[in-house]
């Protein structure tokens, strides 16, 4: 059995008085793509935000490769190797593409290594190289998604969390992004993927969790989830 990189244990998170996560437990093993699927407001993004420290759970624990990160600040969690591409991509609109990438490597003070990483990102996304001096805010949606993913790769994360990478993109770009995610995984990156597009998510994932109103209602391998009647009905549009 592969090593568990991330282990989330019965976390409860709140927005003010709203109980958003009602005891989420999940784990991600090294080399896996794990997908969280569910409808709007099910708690998918909140789960990622809680893991990366943008919000803290009231109870429960989060363990990253043996380190308890439950109460750490986000900038510390990042330097422990959690890459988080937030919902809406979080591109700095008034920083250039290169500056955005530099920000991804903010915690690493190794200039030659960072330049090498930037070249790797450009190999992966040649479009970004053409736009290197442009402001992030002037990129198209697809390019912004590429930049957001490229930026989080600057850190060479132990686990990469992607929040709705397909949101607002044309189908052809969605295919492209998912191909990239598959490729990254093949090259050894562990991925936790949040998607509303359950079809796409389950097509590349090894395992999946189904969230409903802050609870995990189902978990299985991706293949079995695809055949599950409830999943087919609610998330895959198959009657």
């Amino acid at each position: 059995m592969a090593k568990k990189i991330l282990e989330v244990n019965d976390i409860h998170s709140y927005y003010g008085h709203i109980h958003a996560l009602k005891g989420i437990s999940l784990y991600v093993e090294e080399g896996e793509i794990v997908s969280l699927i569910g409808s709007n407001g099910a708690g998918k993004s909140t789960t990622l935000r809680t893991i990366s420290g943008l919000m803290h759970p009231r109870s429960g624990s989060i363990n990253l490769g043996g380190t308890d990160i439950t109460h750490m600040e986000p900038h510390i969690i990042v330097s422990n190797g959690v890459g988080h591409v937030p919902e809406g991509r979080g591109i700095f609109p008034k920083l250039s593409v290169r500056e955005n990438l530099d920000m991804g490597a903010y915690t690493i003070n190794d200039t030659p290594k960072n330049s090498e990483r930037i070249e790797q990102v450009f190999t992966l996304f040649p479009r970004l190289k053409e736009r290197v001096d442009q402001y992030g805010g002037t990129l198209s949606g697809g390019e912004q998604q590429m930049l957001a993913i490229g930026r989080s790769l600057m850190l060479n994360p132990r686990i990469l969390m992607l929040d709705e990478p397909s949101m607002g993109l044309a189908p052809v770009l969605v295919e492209l992004i998912f191909d990239i995610i598959k490729k990254l995984n093949k090259d050894g990156t562990t991925i936790l993927l949040v998607e509303q597009n359950a079809q796409m998510a389950l097509s590349i994932a090894h395992r999946g969790y189904v969230l409903q109103t802050g609870n995990i209602v189902l978990t299985d391998t991706a293949d079995k989830l695809k055949k599950n009647e409830m999943v087919q009905k609610s998330y895959l549009g198959i009657e």
């Binding site: 420290g53 990042v78 700095f92 609109p93 920083l95 920000m103 991804g104 903010y106 915690t107």
Partner: peptide, 17 residues
């Protein structure tokens, strides 16, 4: 650069470390 990043998007800046 970090000051500008924080000014533009505070949560994302923290995700950059």
């Amino acid at each position: 650069k970090a000051i500008r990043a924080v000014a533009q998007d505070r949560p994302t800046a923290s995700l950059m470390g």
